[in-house]
Design a protein around this nucleic acid. Structure first.
Lengths: 199, 199
DNA sequence: TGCTTTCCGTACGGCGGCGTATGGAGCTGT
DNA sequence: ACAGCTCCATACGCCGCCGTACGGAAAGCA
């Protein structure tokens, strides 16, 4: 057994990590670099610890991926709920929502980021749950404005698709697909999908 | 030097591979599994050869990725041109195009597949070129129908975003985001983005 | 102060992929 | 038939990551 480097270097004893700390680090890596970035050894180095810590809290790498996805789903749903809790009117709150999601954001939507690893079964299941709930919500709002059920669901799907694709475009052509303040006019276009009558 | 397994097994002498064969195999892997799937040794195994062949035609793995992307851009542009060569009227051919891209396809659009590796600089550049040309085309068609330049570009961006996102959704929720014959009604919704007047 | 439980550090073996070195096969021309 | 050129097979060394084994530090408790 070699001497501890930390001891020889007189480094302060770092604090011990919880399972949650690992899960949060995994989520950060997941949304930043995809499933491939959820790697034990690089994460350990980033956290200033070693694999020994990780394998105490988790059985294997897949368990960390699952924990990160669960964390993401929790934050994701609560974030959406918070965003909508201030709105009340059925029709106008949908319109505001469409504007909000494009203009009042700093980073890319994690869902759009996760589509890159859609081949991973756990990721696919999580994305499926969150995305279908979004479509359900938009379709429900449209129905409550008097739109027929089937048409409402189709429009909701297109609107969510446009939203997802918007972040993809933003990553590669931010001039054509801006987010934030510059996206106000684009949000109006997106609103057409929900509001305009079919000819 | 060991004896050649092929000789011992009396296998027929396989034919020699060209650089183009490698590039096509790379493109297939790229659109199927992303940049990570463009791996020399697995591809060599799939082609029934070894790395020796690869490194004769290419200097390294990155060169294969570039070759696959170039091949894709060539096929992609010619495919689009072929799709449009049968149409002539400025406004109606845009409408037909929007329907076409959702209904007359069997596999997912490679562009949507490539968005997963948008962090890769070569991929980003290729996707940027193809995507901006698509937006240019749609925006040009809209302008030729009398729509103001800025509004045309915004709508084109939203339409292309919806198209890109559609394939993402299709991968995870094919019920809500169908392609082929079942997408006719959805194509009409997409058409709203181009045609409807802003309120 | 010792003892136990909790947590982490380190070394190790393994695997898969990259790129290199080198020795050929197999065709081509003379 | 022989030389030369094109193309491929095999063996290596390397690196990054996974998961395990095991020992030891820290923290709580007696």
């Amino acid at each position: 057994m070699e001497l501890s480097i930390r001891y020889r270097m007189e480094m302060p004893p770092r604090q011990r990590l919880s399972r949650e700390a690992w899960a949060e680090a995994g989520l950060r890596a997941l949304t930043a670099g995809g499933v491939a970035a959820v790697a034990v050894e690089p994460l350990a180095a980033a956290l200033g610890t070693t694999k020994g810590s990780f394998y105490w809290h988790f059985s294997d790498r897949e368990e960390l991926v699952r924990a990160a996805l669960e964390l993401w789903e929790l934050e994701q749903t609560s974030a959406v709920i918070d965003e909508l809790s201030t709105l009340e009117e059925p029709r106008e709150r949908l319109r505001v929502l469409l504007t909000l999601v494009l203009t009042h954001r700093d980073g890319p939507d994690p869902v759009a980021q996760l589509f890159r690893d859609i081949a991973h079964p756990e990721v696919a299941a999580a994305v499926r749950r969150v995305t279908s709930r979004r479509i359900d919500f938009v379709a429900g709002e449209l129905e409550s404005t008097g739109m027929p059920r089937a048409e409402a669901r189709r429009r909701a799907a297109v609107a969510v698709a446009a939203y997802v694709g918007w972040w993809q475009l933003n990553a590669v052509l931010p001039e054509d697909a801006p987010v934030g303040r510059d996206a106000r006019q684009h949000a109006k276009v997106l609103w057409l999908v929900c509001e305009a009558a079919l000819t």
